[in-house]
Amino acid sequence: MNCEKYKKVFDENNGIVKLSDFTGAGYHNTVIDRLIREGKVIKIRAGFYEWQYEDVISEAVIINKLYPDVIICMDSALYFYDYTERTPAAWHLAVNKNSTKSRFKIDYPKLKIYYIIEKYLKIGISETEFEGQVLSIYNQEKTICDIIRYEKKMDKEVFNKAIRTYATDSNKNVDRLIEYAKLMNIEKKTKLIMGMLL
């Protein structure tokens, strides 16, 4: 089978294609099955397929394509801001509390999903560029509020290092931190933890 014309559809979509995009390009959905049998394509979740290039497709591309609605949070955000030296074992991602849980059942990349209520989900969203992809990420202040909120579920060492590093960050915005803490009902706890360092 001449695969170049099919590969072109994948190339135009960063290597990951939605079935509707593939059929929209004029190809029958049974072609995907043939490409899978020939080892050219793998199914990454229902309705999404990845071309098997020699170079591995970036995790950021997969996240962006499959989950355009997620926001990088917690340990992953700490890593992006250099508030931790520990590389997270999974992508920590925030999503609307009402999102279907089954859509996050994939083998690769590893995901840790936080289901957040709407009023907290929209606070402090920023953007970052990673591996050529623009991804949504919580800003430093929202990230600090999140780890304070989930302190008991966090590794103590990671938590303490992140708090100390934020306190010495020249880009920190303490007014914004307190504003977010108020919105998230953790103002007292935030002032107590940060008060010793700021």
Rank of each mutant, 00 (worst) to 15 (best):
P88K: 09
N64L: 01
F10H: 08
V158W: 01
T87N: 04
D107S: 13
V95S: 11
I32T: 08
C73R: 01
D175P: 03
Y83P: 00
L135I: 12
K105W: 02
Y150R: 12
K43A: 13
R45G: 00
E127A: 08
D107M: 06
R37Y: 06
E141Y: 11
N160M: 07
L66G: 04
L111M: 08
T190V: 09
V134C: 04
K112D: 09
V41E: 11
I148Q: 13
V61D: 04
V9I: 15
H92G: 09
E129W: 00
Y27H: 09
R176G: 02
T165P: 02
K119H: 13
W51Q: 11
I63R: 01
K182F: 00
E131R: 07
I62N: 01
I113M: 15
T100D: 10
M184T: 01
I116S: 12
K105T: 09
V9E: 02
T87K: 12
R37I: 03
M1K: 10
Y67S: 01
Y120R: 14
L121K: 09
S170E: 15
Y108Q: 11
I147N: 14
Q133W: 00
E131K: 11
E50R: 15
A162D: 06
C3E: 08
I193H: 08
R34W: 02
P109T: 11
G15V: 04
S170P: 15
V158G: 02
K172I: 05
G24I: 04
V17C: 13
P68D: 06
E187K: 15
K8P: 01
M196N: 02
I71V: 15
A25Y: 04
T143C: 15
I63Y: 03
Y53W: 09
T30Q: 08
P109V: 13
I144V: 14
N160A: 09
N64G: 05
I57Y: 05
W51D: 13
M194P: 07
D175T: 12
C3M: 07
I42D: 10
R37G: 06
G24K: 12
A60F: 02
G26A: 09
D21R: 05
Y49I: 08
E118W: 08
I186C: 13
R103T: 02
G132V: 05
M154G: 02
M194S: 06
T190I: 05
I186Y: 07
I72Y: 00
K40I: 03
L66K: 04
N96W: 02
L197Y: 10
S76R: 06
I144R: 03
N185H: 15
K105R: 13
E85K: 08
Y67K: 01
K43E: 08
M74P: 00
F104H: 02
M1L: 12
L192A: 11
M1V: 08
V61K: 10
G124W: 05
L111Y: 08
K112S: 14
N173M: 10
I163M: 12
D107H: 06
D21M: 08
Y81V: 07
Y83G: 03
N171L: 14
